[in-house]
Design a protein around this nucleic acid. Structure first.
Lengths: 221, 221
DNA sequence: ACCTGAACACCGTTCAAGT
DNA sequence: ACCTGAACACCGTTCAAGT
């Protein structure tokens, strides 16, 4: 993704296009977060007025649909190159972890996915691929269906954490009232000396939860 | 929750208070969705001007924090009444399904949880309770920690579906390009004749996924 | 065909002023 | 102590008008 700041060069010669608008939108979200993605800011980056955007996209929802689709296509491109191998679990696991890597470059994407009400076409394509792997591994169609629900957003590589475990603002919680949590934290933090701030290893926890589900599916196969 | 519409009675005698503001906010979100929750609308419902709200809450973020906390307290109230029994899995399962029931009455709540950056105190209390049950069931602190991550938002009773499976707007996806998905749908829909629209049984799928995880934890205990 | 200026209806929020 | 009017800086969006 091109640096947003260099996009608004002195030469606004490049004509506007739907594609350029979408790419710029992804760039803004990547670099400055979803909240920074406003029609006016987007227009600025692309060297035009906000109203001009409406000639190329129908509205902001359209833009959000498009950037979600853009990221999913990136995931499909990566994932299509993976070779499948004979083991369904290895294949599914590799696919999901590869998807996760893409999403880590577009941290805003899950939030956008969640607000889409119509299915994003390349997500269906992604799921179709997963089903293919599971079918080849001997899953019934029914089990595939349950598996997709059970994986939920994990199928795309993101797990829904309840809050960022690394922010410390506001008063620290009263651990005296939370004996079990306090005990757990003491022990877990003690075991891992890197415990300055974000003391949870997201990648490890993601794989732990994923394997829990995949192992469970294996047993129900 | 009192009907929002009756709240703006001819008598705006009841003085404003933080509590009344928060309850009204929950009411609006319940009945009209999160998007309808604006400062001006909230003021209207409560019989005041938008600016008056700022005397009782510090800003909109404060309101969102508060309504998230409100719902979590409702969950804790319900869950604290459950008796624990000897089986950790039964106890955890019952707790989570009870939490789910509350959340089904406040469908907006997960979206608000996700946007909170500071931990919501009663969520910590809820987790503390879960840890207690798992510790009593023989879990190590380490396994409790992984379990909470693996459960993620499922610990509170909601699973992150990728999109509402019941909306049909826009063009139907091209199933010819999605052979595995098409095959799965045909079979699954065929088996369940109630397949008018929302043909997935959310409650069943939730429990399926939950049990997959709980069974996996049992095995790693 | 492509872009824009002016304008509209909405946000959240501040602040000096009212009771 | 509690509430408000007027105002500000921001949204997304429309539409008639420019090139």
């Amino acid at each position: 993704m091109a640096k947003v700041t260099t996009e608004s060069a002195p030469q606004p010669r490049i004509p506007l296009s739907r594609d350029r608008v979408v790419r710029a939108a992804v760039g803004i979200a990547d670099e400055q977060g979803l909240a920074a993605l406003t029609m006016r800011r987007l227009a600025e980056v692309v060297g035009a007025e906000a109203m001009s955007l409406y000639y190329h996209v129908s509205n902001k929802e359209d833009i959000l649909d498009s950037i979600a689709e853009y990221v999913m296509q990136e995931i499909n491109d990566v994932v299509d190159k993976l070779d499948k191998g004979p083991d369904w679990k290895q294949a599914v696991r590799a696919r999901i972890l590869a998807a996760r890597e893409v999403l880590l470059r577009h941290k805003w994407a899950p939030a956008v996915f969640e607000t889409r009400k119509n299915p994003i076409p390349p997500v269906l394509r992604y799921h179709d691929g997963l089903i293919g792997l599971m079918r080849a591994g001997g899953f019934s169609n029914d089990l595939c269906h349950h598996a997709l629900h059970a994986l939920g957003s994990r199928a795309l590589g993101f797990s829904q954490e309840l809050f960022d475990a690394g922010d410390d603002e506001g008063p620290p919680p009263d651990l005296a009232q939370l004996p079990n949590l306090a005990g757990m934290l003491m022990e877990v933090v003690h075991d891992d000396p890197d415990s300055t701030i974000g003391w949870c290893d997201d990648q490890f926890e993601f794989e732990f939860g994923l394997d829990l589900i995949l192992d469970g599916l294996e047993r129900r196969r």
